[in-house]
Design a protein around this nucleic acid. Sequence first.
RNA 1: GGGAGAGUUCCAGAGUGGCCAAAUGGGGCAGACUGUAAAUCUGUUGCGUAUCGCUUCGGUGGUUCGAAUCCACCCUCUCCCA
Length: 298
Amino acid sequence: MALPKLVVILGPTACGKSGLGVTLAKKYGGEIVSADSRQVYRGLDLGTGKITIAEMDGVAHHLLDVAQPGEQYSVARFQQEAYTALDGVIERDRLPFLVGGTGLYLRSVAEGYVFQVAPPDHTLRAELEALPTEVLRQRLLDAGVELDSDAWNNRPRLVRLTEKLRSGGDPHAEAERQPRYDVLTLGVAYPREAICRRIDKRLVARLDAGMVEEVAALRSQGVSDEFLYGLGLEYRYILRHLTGELSMEELIEELGRAIKRFAKRQVSWFKKDKDVHWLDMEADPITEATELIDSFLS
RNA sequence: GGGAGAGUUCCAGAGUGGCCAAAUGGGGCAGACUGUAAAUCUGUUGCGUAUCGCUUCGGUGGUUCGAAUCCACCCUCUCCCA
């Protein structure tokens, strides 16, 4: 039995994924499932570049605003909820579009990651987090776990490896996949300089639109600084501005740089996926995408 | 006009005779990443026909086997007294 079809739209930040998603979804009678690790939170709007109701233009969107700021979210939870949402779209006999920039989230659904039975143990994590890195590392080494240089100082990863070990999992287990969809992946990207220009432009526009005020409001509603800091980018840098650490000029400069660095990391991630059909955004991406989708559906 | 101090590799900033192409941080570049992923982490960052050679530490000229480090003069900047 053939797998249901899914169109994935991915790409670095500020390249027009959401807009393209809406256009294509309208054209094909589709619905959109967002794949963004920060847009799942309610109230994180300007800072995440979340699509507005008006911009949705009547197209149904899923997995936006499904968690409370401060709440724990994870790839596994995302995958679960995305599967449910996508299956709903398919049942309604509509074409599902998975649109977003969180590489891990996208891939977990598009490729069907099978997660080990080792859910986060927050009590254990709290314990481990108090330990020095060398201790975390040494315990794993003593247990025969092999660590590559990339994980050597990576505390979150050391903690997760320990967690897997404790719950009887195998830290070396081969990554498993069970694809549930027949996927067409469209990539949205501009040349590097163009991305940088778009990022700068969008940053200023969002600050004008009240992005700093959004963060201030979240704080006054009781969202912790720790959570905001952990979100990174806009929330982290604006928090630092609000606490007086960064002037407005420094905020614009440093945040702009950080977003560009992030875009680069996204590109690094997406580049590895050889199945992406990269659209030429400076030509006619809609026609190009339409042709690809048409042949994908036929 | 007089006095004090400073000029270092993209930036900031260590380094005061050999272990210095030069610490560290930032930035840049490349990368990793299956339950925190906008997070977290790794490598690299003068040039070259590369376990060796070449050109760098404001400029010029000295001292020395050897100088970013010492001396002289010059240029620039900061500060203090006028």
